[in-house]
Every structure is written in C-alpha cells, then in structure tokens.
Design a protein around this nucleic acid. Structure first.
Lengths: 286, 286
DNA sequence: TTTAAAAAAGAAAATTATTTTCATAAATAT
DNA sequence: ATATTTATGAAAATAATTTTCTTTTTTAAA
C-alpha cells in the first residue's frame, strides 16, 4: 500500500474520534478522495472541513490540496474501478469525450491484463510457420480482420480477409495442414464465423479465435484462444471499446511476430513502405 | 515526455500569443508548475489567471486544479510511458506487451487533448444534416473509413467507403451541396485522398479531414479539421498507434452524433442490432 | 458527584484560489 | 477605412480552504 495510507493506518489509534472516522473513510475510499473537494469529503465522511484541514496538518502536509496531490501521486498504479459507459441522450460534448476516452483506455488496460502469454506464443509461432493465413469475421469484426490482413501483407505473409462469409468458407476449404485460420467475433457466437473456422479445422489448419473473455462456442472449438476485455452487459450503443481491444490484441501479436523474426521480416516491411511511398510519389504514409 | 506536455508542445503553434507564452513556461518549468497556485503561475509566466484557466479548458481539463493533478501524476510515472516505442529485434514478449499497451494508451490520451470542440461540433452538425457521406482513405486509413462506414449505416445514414481510390473519386463526383466528404490520412499528403476530397469540395460538399496534428495539405484544403496525435518521427514499424488515435476520434464523433440526436437515431441503431441478431438466429454480436 | 480545565469539533468568518464576466485592445475580414 | 471578430486582463463572482471562535465533550481534581 502507499506510504501515506500506511501512515494513516498506523497512526489510527492515536487520533481523535472524528479524525479516526475520517481516517477510516480515506482508507476505504482512497481512490475517490483524490477527486473530491474538502466540502464533499467532510459530508461523505460525516466530519467537518475544519477537521479535515487539521488532519492534513497533523500528517505534515501543507494543507488539504497538498495532501490530495501527494496521495494521488502515490495511487497512480492502483487499478481504477470505473465502469464502461454507454451512450446516453443529450450529454454535453466534454462529458462524451471524457467517457469515450475512459472506455478506450480501460478496454486497452483490461485486454492487456487478460493476455495469456502461452497462447500468445502459440499464436505467434503458428503464424510464423503458416504458408497461408485466413481471417474470418463479419460486421464490426471484419474491420479488424482487414486491419490484420494489411499488416500481414506488409511482411509478405500470404493471407486473405474476405468480408463476405461465403467467400470465407470457400477460402477455408483451400487450406491445409500448417496453415492458420483466425476467427474474430466479440460474442464468439456468430454462426458464419464459427462455420468458417470449423471448415478450416477440418482441412487441418491451426485455428485461432479472438473473442470476449469467457466460455463461448468459437473459443471452445479453436486450438488457440485469445481474448479481449468483456464489456458490461447490455452495452450496445457504446460498444466501440470492444473493437479497440481486439485491435490491441492484433497489434501485440504482430509486434511479437516482427520482433521475434526481426531480421527476416523487417526488410520486407521496410521495402513495402518504400514502394508505396515511391509509387504515390508525393505521399508519405496514408 | 508526458502525454500532456506532448499535447501542449504539439498544439503550440495553434495557440494564441499569451497562451504560447504560458505553454512555453509550463514546458520549461513543468516540475515547478504542479506546486504553484494559479496566481503565482500567472505572475511567473507573465500572463493572467484568466488565460491560465482558459488554457486548461482548451486542453479539456476540468480546470487548473485538475490540470495540475493530472500533470503531477504523469510526471511521476514518466519513465515507463516516456515516448512511443518502435518495434525492435528480439524483445521478450512481456516487454512488447507493455510497450504496445503504453503506445496505445498514449495515443488515446494525446489525441483526446488535441480535440478542438468547435471543429468537432461543426463535424457532428455537418454529418447530421448530410444526405450522403463519402469516406476517403487508402491503405491503413481505409480500415478506419470502413469502420466509420459500418457505424453510419447502423444509424441509417447513407454513406460509401470504397477502398479503391478510383471509386472514391467517382463517388465524389456524385456529391452535391449539403453532402459531407471525410478524408483520412495520417500524413495528410496521400495524393489519392487529397484528389478525392478536392473533387468533393468542387461539387459543393462540406469537407472534413482527419490527419496527424500540424499543417499538411489535406488538412489545409478542408473545411473542418480534425487531428489525431503525432508519433515520433521515423516510427514506421510500430506506427499502429496512429490508427488507434484515428478510431478514437471516429468514436467520439459518432457518440456525439448519436447522443445529440438520441431519440431520432437510437431506434434505428436498435433496429439494426435486432435485425442482425434475428437474421443470424443463434448469434448475438459479431 | 461536582466543578474546573483542557481538548475536540463544528459553525461561521476570513482568507485564498479559481472561474467567469465584462470592457478594451488587437487582429482579421469586409 | 470600417466593421466584426477574437484575444486579453482587470475586476467581479464564485468556490475552496483555513482560521477563528464558540460550544460541546472529555478529563482531572476536589
């Protein structure tokens, strides 16, 4: 625990009655306290602003503001217990910006915590060995497959990412042992995607799934299981965070792949970059 | 450097005279600033408390106190999220995961600080009024246009997002006054994308650009200018963060649009959700 | 017990910090 | 050259924090 909170805990018995109440409140709600004003804290902790001000001086802070600052600095590494926020009617723009930012930051942080290094390593190795990579996903997930497709092309890996489910199954039937099929579906229950991955598996391909965390059909039938963070139930309108989490996983796989086989892959990556630049003469990136 | 200081640095040219003086002072004395009051800072930086207060809101902090708090937090945890990290050879997987996470978190934080609410509002209004929305982008950026396309379709907004530049220009020629064209290019110098947006503009459409922050051709020719955070120079292999920043902006626009016209748009959104669910019988999302 | 003294605690006043308003100056467009 | 917009600081308004002062509670001594 942080040194400030430890100090408060240790000194607890030596404090006055109201100071003890305050101390307990701070220990129980440290995360919130740093965002509160002295008036709110007085109300919440059933004490008074005067007590709080004195309390801070007791612990040799310049005052309440100084205390909050130092505490906040100490708490930075602690996990936040915020929740994903859905879109609601008529929010002011600054609230929306804040909410979307929080959702995305959280999705990335949560997804990172869910990564299973064993599964990740298996995925990276399978991709490296694959002669051919198939990517399956419909709707929102097809955007993610397109993204991965673009990356794989740049390192010279043969791959396909058809947005059309029929083409996906058709492509799956052309795979063979040693090839890799990756299926992406947030729910893990999209029938088209499941069928495509099943077909790929029947052809002997190594199958990888990327779904929300927890048991689901797609994940259960696949050889290698990757996950992105799970949103609150019933989040439909503001479910954009799930896609960010999926892309985050894709980026991690890709980065690991390139880093591990750096000398083999980077020249190709570099060449593709130069070629595009040259072809579009004036342009740099896109 | 911290994401807040980076944002201040990036936006420097776009600020007013006194705001620039303030920005320079903060960049040069970041460590002291977090301990100063607004009056001291006004005096030291030769500006006024009003300018400082406004400055903090420009960067989407709640106010000066909030700014100090966030800055102080960042200055402490700097070493880990110091700069965007490129892919290097033979990094262990846990380092890679950390690095990718840091890049993505930073990209989202940086991009949020760069948002100009006036431009955002203009973009949201233009989209709401548009009969037809065209999306232009090639390569990596085409994935982002696909993503936005999917969202717009779900709220019943007519739009197109061809990955083929020829089709993009062709589509542009069918636009008219009141329609909207959005062009996405990280560098802002992709010729195909610039041409498409120019064509759209000639047809009388309202043009919106989404590029890296700073002056660039695409941004300069467009009516409404949106930006995502700028990566370190020469980041090619690990430039995945730019796409995350762009998607972040897209999500913010979309969320603002839906929130502002909630009762008009959410039924359509809800219906599209139900229809897909029903059609794919077993599936839920994708 | 009762009472005096000391400590604790909150209400309210005073102080300090921050934000907003408003008038003016500077810049930009017409 | 003039109108309009934008930027800015002074000052007013508001908010946050600290201090003072009074009341209450506790402790100690008679």
């Amino acid at each position: 625990m942080s040194s400030i909170l430890t100090a408060i805990q240790e000194k607890h018995e030596g404090l006055n009655r109201q100071e003890q109440n305050l101390a307990r409140y701070i220990l129980d709600h440290s995360q919130q306290v740093v965002t509160m004003g002295i008036t709110d804290l007085a109300e919440q902790s059933q004490t008074s602003t005067a007590t709080i001000s004195r309390f801070c001086k007791t612990f040799h802070f310049q005052g309440f503001t100084d205390f909050k600052m130092k505490l906040s600095t100490e708490l930075v590494q602690m996990p936040s217990n915020a929740t994903y926020q859905d879109i609601v009617a008529g929010n002011p723009m600054d609230r929306i910006v804040q909410a979307v930012e929080a959702n995305h930051l959280r999705s990335i942080a949560d997804t990172t915590r869910l990564i299973d290094f064993k599964q990740l390593k298996l995925a990276v190795d399978a991709l490296h060995k694959a002669k051919q990579v198939d990517l399956y996903g419909v709707g929102t997930s097809s955007v993610v497959t397109q993204d991965f497709y673009q990356k794989l092309v740049r390192i010279g890996k043969r791959s396909t990412a058809f947005p059309d489910p029929h083409m996906q199954i058709t492509s799956a039937s052309a795979l063979s042992t040693g090839d890799v099929a990756i299926a992406i579906s947030y729910s893990g229950e999209t029938p088209e995607t499941i069928h495509s991955l099943q077909s790929a598996q029947e052809r002997g391909a190594t199958t990888i799934s990327l779904t929300k965390y927890g048991s689901n059909t797609l994940s259960n039938i696949s050889d290698i299981r990757l996950f992105s963070s799970t949103l609150e139930e019933g989040m439909r309108r503001g479910d954009m965070a799930s896609r960010i989490g999926q892309l985050h996983v894709i980026d991690i796989i890709f980065t690991c792949l390139v880093s591990e086989h750096f000398h083999e892959l980077v020249p190709t990556l570099e060449r593709s970059y130069q070629m595009v630049k040259q072809y579009t003469y004036k342009g740099r990136d896109n």
